[in-house]
Amino acid sequence: MRPFQYMRPEGLDHAGQLLRDGARPIAGGTNLLDLMKLEVEAPDRLVDINRLPLGGIAPTDDGGVRIGALVTNSACAADLQIRRDYPVLARAILAGATFQLRNMATTGGNLCQRTRCYYFTNIDQPCNKRQPGSGCGAIGGHNRIHAILGASDACIATYPGDMAVALAALHADVEIERPDGTSRTVPVRTFHRLPGDTPDLDNVLEAGEVITAVILPPPAGGTQLYRKVRDRSSYAFALVSVAAVVRMDGDTIGSAALAFGGLAHKPWHDPRVEQLLAGQRPSDALFHQAADLLLEDAEGQGENDFKIPLTRRTLLASLREATGGAA
């Protein structure tokens, strides 16, 4: 690990100033310290934000829930209101990592976790995300875990998390404090970026900005599920995952909010698919149409070609379960 200066900010403003000047924030540290040991990350200043008042889960005025950025993944999944009203979120969190890691990992940090692309985490390999302009080893290389949607010629990495996929299905917002003390909110659905020609940027956070909370809208109700397909039954990243929040209106689908993990540089969503399903009677024919639309532009890279049929099957299984078992 490269040497760094360890700092504790006096408050949120001070943290923003330090971060604007190029320091890196550390909260749970489970991803950042791992990457620092590999020298994938080599910050010269580390700002420990754990003592900032960014904890707590509290109701919002409009009937939603505000989850502080420093709330651990364990605490979020264990919260009684989250379990009751936002089960897809609790399920997604419990599907990721281990209890030890979730006891440290935070809500804000989880959003900012970095790709597990083999080339990104190996400093002897080319990677446009880690070192812009060095090339992409995964294109034409080993790419079993890589993107089938939204990739670019510069990067085919995937966003690895589970929590953010559920948040995308729930239409949650990210609350961000700017260094000048003002704040802004960004929908989780647009917080992460597609790689384009700047894959070094994972998300829309700007220098000096700090995530202060995740805001959940009022409970959506309906059937909520998180289906994760992975190489082993525990403690593995998603090859494909689906977060679904489906409300039935009699025999027809009232609404279906869907988000997908393991497919792209961000939690993937496709409003066209959600529109296609709304107001329709559930059937496998309909679900195949949804998969056709979702995967219209899907492109395999060789080793990850299997993800295209796997995504179709996972979507079908999720929709059957969420709508009560159409055949």
């Binding site: 310290l33 791992d34 030890q100 440290m104």
Partner: peptide, 24 residues
């Protein structure tokens, strides 16, 4: 953080002691 051999309890909760700094 992959093997758990370093697991300890911090304030009663289990964590991987390899993935946190002593100073934190």
């Amino acid at each position: 953080g992959q093997c758990g051999a370093c697991t300890v309890l911090v304030n009663g909760q289990r964590v991987n002691s390899c993935l946190t700094l002593a100073i934190m």
